[in-house]
Write a protein that binds this DNA or RNA. Structure first.
Lengths: 118, 118
DNA sequence: TAAATATATGAATAAATGCTCATATATTTA
DNA sequence: TAAATATATGAGCATTTATTCATATATTTA
């Protein structure tokens, strides 16, 4: 983990390009947030949850049946998606129905899918 | 890891929704590919490489200087991005200049960024 | 209020990830 | 052809991640 004190010990062929990249670079925090967003989409089961909720809201045990994993696993995944505000829930008695917060995320996933399919 | 033989031992409150989700679900392979795509974007340094290459093609050692990591680390990251066809390179003498294969990926990243910024 | 149901959470664990170091390969130059 | 330069690769390691199991919390029903 190099700190900013001892940088530039490495070679640099095109200093102007490195400087240019530095100037136009996004803030570290923004990069981190972006990586976190993509990380949330970088798991098959979370993607399947997102696409399933695109159709209809679902409760934890239905999602567990759909994914064929434990309800605990789904609950952990939903917590992550909740923390990023990808999903919200409404309680009806003892049952929590999860749904997508908005269409942004599934549109992003859909666009990536389009890219995959060329 | 439950196999498909002993499924449905779990509760299921809305069987029709689970069936509906199953019917409209993407193929497992497609989900895997999509997760892999997002996984490639789920790392700060790879994102920084992608945004840097959006400006101009760059060689390995310049990218290493820009990111402040070893050239080996950059080379490993570039291999992953190359395997997914996110980047390509051209050789000029001993130097490999990397660039984005097309604008798809950076557009996807840009769209995600828009979402973050609301 | 006790039991049953639905979900959440913490700990533990196996697998994946990203880095560094050492070394290999490829190209140019002396 | 030997040395120098630019990049790639494999092994090893620390960290993160996704899951399960055990247990806790919250809601409804008997």
């Amino acid at each position: 983990m190099p700190n900013s004190e001892d940088r530039c010990q490495c070679r640099m062929i095109h200093e102007e390009r490195v400087d240019g990249a530095r100037q136009k670079a996004l803030a570290a925090e923004e990069i981190e947030n972006l990586a976190q967003l993509f990380k949330a989409l970088a798991d098959p089961n979370r993607l399947r949850i997102i696409f399933a909720l695109e159709q209809d809201e679902m409760c934890v045990c239905d999602l567990a049946a759909f994914l064929e994993v434990t309800e605990s696993a789904v609950s952990h995944q939903l917590r992550l998606l909740r923390q990023l505000n990808f999903v919200t829930n409404r309680r009806q008695g003892p049952i929590l129905y999860y749904r997508l917060t908005d269409s942004h995320i599934s549109r992003l996933a859909g666009l990536a899918l389009d890219h995959l399919r060329e």
